[in-house]
Design a protein around this nucleic acid. Structure first.
Lengths: 224, 224
DNA sequence: GCCAATTTTTGAACGCGATCAAAAAACTAC
DNA sequence: GTAGTTTTTTGATCGCGTTCAAAAATTGGC
């Protein structure tokens, strides 16, 4: 994440200035179009200073990940305490997420671009993002555990990860969504939530047990 | 794709030399580590020549897409004529795909990296790759139509796209798969194929009709 | 075969992300 | 306060992808 063991003098302020300048510019012009030189200029430091605090341009995005994930942890606390219906709990998480990411929609296109490259340091699936990812998955675990839906235990083990993956897919769709006010994402979210909750409810039926078992086997084989 | 309206003198040969040099180097060292200067040197042309034939480094990858897709069209002809079991037909397609891509596994990481960026010209989901994508989806349509499985027509409309998406997911998994001889991908492929075929077989059951309908609604909302 | 028009090839130049030796500032112990 | 050490900042420098004006090669009409 950061290249420094945050030695926390007042010059830690510089780091914040650089991060803030970067996010502002990412928001304004996107990730690829923002140059390190601009970021540094905006933050009133020399070009090299950005590299003193962040090992790369992409690492700045990592810092952004971490920051938004911490915010999410806070933001979801209230709805998780107030609501017990699973659909409502999941919708609350997703709504908060999109509200939080909205200003960065354009910038995130380029960020997600690294999603699929195992070599990229900012891949949401890579080693370097594991801590942040785990924290994000935990939110879905809590959403499940505090809800009224009872899921077969073999399936329940995999559900938080699966829901996290689902939410990443939604974010990916949202990034591409050029419809007015992202109505298509809204529709997809509502319909997919319906389907998910219905699938979970029928997942306990005896007739579907062999199918469910095949599904769980599949999930197990993915998780090594 | 190509920047030239392939004026087809013998200097079209140059284009082939550049593409071949690029693919060789991508295979050897990966996409990001291969420089345009190297490609040009390997092809015995000046740096700028590469840009005369390909608008960018990424466009070379696009040409690679197109070429492999044409090969796939050829390669799948035989198994599609010989086999009628759906699972076997799908497995044949996937096996051929992985066999074809194996030499480029490392290079493809970087290629797929653009998958998620709507702005990237080489995103497999973007406008510029539509022709190639459609051709790829057609292979799955043929695999379905020539098979023995009967699928409800509302679902059948969406299946080729869905199977294409599934196959992209598998390729993505395969790129990340560092297990010996990609055994994990092999396992995931077999189990997911089992599940898909089973799901298709039960998709006609009356009891599941409402669930299926919800699923089809979901698919429809994605496809605008 | 010749010359004008066109296509192809060249390599210097640009701004980029990133690096690093050295300068400046901040901190520590006395 | 001062000297020595560490942290922070600087900007010149590197090789990269990409651009482009100009040179070279090719083509087509006569």
């Amino acid at each position: 994440m950061s290249s420094r063991k945050l030695s926390t003098p007042k010059a830690e302020e510089t780091r914040r200035r650089i991060l803030q300048a970067a996010l502002g510019l990412f928001q304004e012009k996107g990730f690829a179009e923002t140059t390190i030189r601009e970021i540094a200029r905006e933050a009133s430091v020399a070009t090299g200073a950005a590299y003193y605090y962040f090992p790369s341009k992409e690492a700045i995005v990592m810092a952004f990940y971490a920051q938004t994930q911490e915010e999410m942890q806070e933001l979801t606390r209230k709805p998780m305490a107030e609501e017990s219906d699973l659909r409502a709990r999941l919708k609350a998480i997703l709504d908060l997420k999109f509200e939080q990411l909205r200003p960065y929609q354009k910038a995130l296109g380029a960020v997600f671009a690294s999603a699929a490259d195992p070599a990229s340091p900012i891949s949401p699936f890579g080693d370097q993002t594991q801590a942040i990812r785990d924290q994000s998955i935990r939110i879905f675990r809590e959403a499940l555990e505090g809800s009224d839906v009872k899921v077969p235990s073999d399936l329940a083990d995999h559900l938080p990860r699966l829901l996290w993956l689902y939410h990443m897919g939604l974010v990916l769709f949202w990034i591409h969504d050029r419809s007015p006010r992202q109505k298509r994402t809204e529709r997809l979210m509502n319909r997919s939530l319906d389907l998910i909750v219905r699938l979970l409810r029928v997942s306990r039926f005896r007739i579907l047990a062999p199918l469910r078992k095949a599904g769980v086997e599949l999930l197990r084989s993915v998780e090594e």
